[in-house]
């Protein structure tokens, strides 16, 4: 297995608890410590409180984490498609200046399809100030099937769409690949809990390393396993660098951050 990497950028991480199973060690300090152990330099996080209960408070907690760990944690914004257009717009205007990307739009948790009216409102707002959008996908969830994005992506060509979990399961991976091949602004997220033998090699072969970004989904998932699967995949070091760092650096426009963060090399 390849030795530990450095300066990984994680575009899919969270903070906080989850009601379905016990999560410990999940505040900002814990997540940064885990990141240090694994060579992850920058994490884009959203707080689970925002995904599960109150979007405003969740976004505030993410912003506080970014303030607590400048240069290490970037705030990811969450918006709730079940709210009124006015509420969505107010929260967009409040949190947009502070978020590096939208992490994540979650049709499964919000029981609202990505091609429905709530997310149309959200994406139209994000499109006014384009930043990368991580969308949770899961072929097994009726709200989160990757093919629902077929109706959405062409309407927002300026938005980089990151397909969260790359469809998550067999059948979903194939649809995510189709999207990434069809649309220049669609990218895949390397995070998934079921690490099928050969799937990373298959994804990279299909869409190319320049279309895949590293995500850990910690503390929801074990970040070591997510890093480990990319360390062991048989690709060139240049491809690994793209997935671990360079693709995210480009999409998140981190060059300006590099100048203010001397440890980032």
């Amino acid at each position: 297995m390849t030795e530990l990497y450095h300066d990984i950028i994680d575009i899919h991480a969270h903070l906080g608890k989850y009601h379905q199973f016990p999560l410990a060690h999940c505040d900002a300090g814990d997540v940064v410590q885990q990141a240090d152990e694994l060579g992850i330099r920058i994490l884009c996080v959203s707080h689970m409180y925002g995904l599960l209960y109150d979007v405003r408070e969740g976004n505030t907690l993410s912003r506080e984490a970014a303030r607590q760990f400048p240069g290490r944690i970037l705030a990811g914004g969450v918006l709730d498609p079940r709210e009124s257009e006015e509420e969505i717009e107010n929260e967009f205007n409040r949190c947009e200046p502070h978020v590096a990307m939208w992490n994540e739009l979650h049709p499964a948790l919000h029981r609202s399809p990505i091609n429905g009216p709530g997310y149309t409102t959200i994406l139209s707002l994000i499109n006014t100030k384009p930043k990368p959008v991580l969308v949770h996908t899961d072929e097994d969830d009726p709200y989160s099937r990757p093919d629902l994005l077929e109706e959405v992506v062409p309407r927002f060509p300026a938005l980089p769409f990151l397909i969260g979990h790359s469809g998550n399961v067999i059948g979903g991976f194939e649809k995510a690949v189709d999207l990434a091949l069809k649309y220049e602004n669609v990218y895949l997220d390397s995070t998934f809990s079921r690490n099928f033998l050969g799937v990373m090699e298959w994804l990279i072969k299909k869409v190319g390393a320049e279309k895949i970004l590293f995500g850990s989904d910690m503390p929801f998932l074990n970040a070591s396993a997510q890093v480990g699967k990319l360390l062991s995949v048989r690709i060139t070091e240049s491809q690994r660098e793209r997935i671990f760092r360079e693709n995210a650096r480009g999409l998140l426009k981190l060059d300006s951050m590099e100048r203010t963060s001397p440890k980032f090399s």
Partner: peptide
């Protein structure tokens, strides 16, 4: 194996 890959679990053990 052969459904899932051993390396992610190995990494989890090694880096714990």
């Amino acid at each position: 194996l052969p459904v899932f890959s051993p390396e992610p679990v190995m990494a989890m053990v090694m880096s714990a």
